[in-house]
């Protein structure tokens, strides 16, 4: 009896949490499929005839298509660079002893302690002076400074969990440092690398503040475009929601693709 009641309450609680977290997403997707009169109806309508009108509108808008492409360029480049640079750094932090290691470790994460808005103006002025405003590169560079620490932290932890004997065995087998990293640490660190890549991609994809400050026309990213609809006296909810849905899709696809690598127990069988 007790367990049945417990299970029921458990399920109920979980359902509430899921409803609470999923509802905004549900509302966004359904709103993007409503026509203007359904959108503004009060009380809100739950049953309606879906329309793809807003999607047609945004895909006809070259600005939106360009923004999605810009976002893709920036996010993919940032994520690739963050992993390419972060994973070797994490390996060094996990396995080598060198002077200032602990300080470096702390310093890596310290830039995440500062509120992004504090740095926005200095970064803007810097970008202005080196003539990087409104380029993909400036966004990639600034996102890297935010994403590298995350990649380094997650991967360091992951690499530390790999038994040291594996590296020693490989050294005796004649593998050099680079081969050990590539053949032992990367394959076994894939879960950590995958998680950090997802974080990195989501951050770069959704980032609004710096994208707003550092871009003008040419490299506006998707979140910038979505908010740009909210101007003047007009609030084209359908268009905003459709853009929002389109923005969320790549993240979900990327996360689904990568998440199959997020498995535990890769090092099972190595020792004992």
């Amino acid at each position: 009896m007790q367990t049945t009641l417990g299970r029921t309450l458990h399920a109920l609680g979980l359902t509430l949490v899921i409803l609470f977290t999923m509802f905004p997403f549900y509302w966004m997707v359904t709103s993007s499929l409503k026509d203007q009169s359904d959108l503004l109806a009060s009380p809100p309508v739950w049953l309606f005839v879906p329309t793809l009108e807003h999607y047609g509108e945004i895909f006809a808008d070259q600005k939106v298509v360009n923004a999605v492409i810009n976002s893709l360029i920036v996010s993919v480049s940032t994520t690739a660079l963050a992993v390419l640079l972060g994973a070797p750094a994490a390996y060094a932090l996990a396995r080598f002893e060198f002077r200032g290691k602990q300080d470096l470790w702390f310093w890596f994460i310290s830039n995440r302690m500062i509120s992004p808005i504090v740095l926005a103006l200095p970064v803007y002025l810097l970008a202005l002076q080196v003539k990087l405003l409104d380029t993909h590169l400036v966004l990639i560079l600034i996102y890297l400074t935010f994403n590298l620490p995350i990649v380094v932290w997650i991967c360091t932890d992951q690499f530390r969990s790999i038994p040291k004997e594996l590296e020693q065995a490989a050294r005796l087998d004649g593998a050099n440092q680079w081969i050990i990293f590539r053949k032992i640490y990367v394959p076994l660190g894939i879960p950590g690398i995958a998680v950090s890549a997802i974080f990195s991609f989501i951050f770069s994809w959704n980032e609004l503040l710096y994208a707003l400050v550092l871009t003008r026309r040419t490299v506006q990213t998707a979140p910038v475009i979505a908010t740009s609809f909210m101007s003047g006296y007009e609030l084209p909810w359908g268009k905003i929601m459709a853009t929002g849905t389109v923005i969320v899709l790549p993240v979900i696809i990327f996360a689904l693709l990568v998440s199959k690598h997020m498995v535990r127990g890769l090092t099972m069988g190595a020792t004992k």
């Binding site: 004997e165 594996l166 065995a169 020792t271 004992k272």
Partner: peptide, 8 residues
């Protein structure tokens, strides 16, 4: 090795 240290 005591722990075998096989590449898993």
């Amino acid at each position: 090795f005591q722990s075998y240290a096989l590449y898993p």
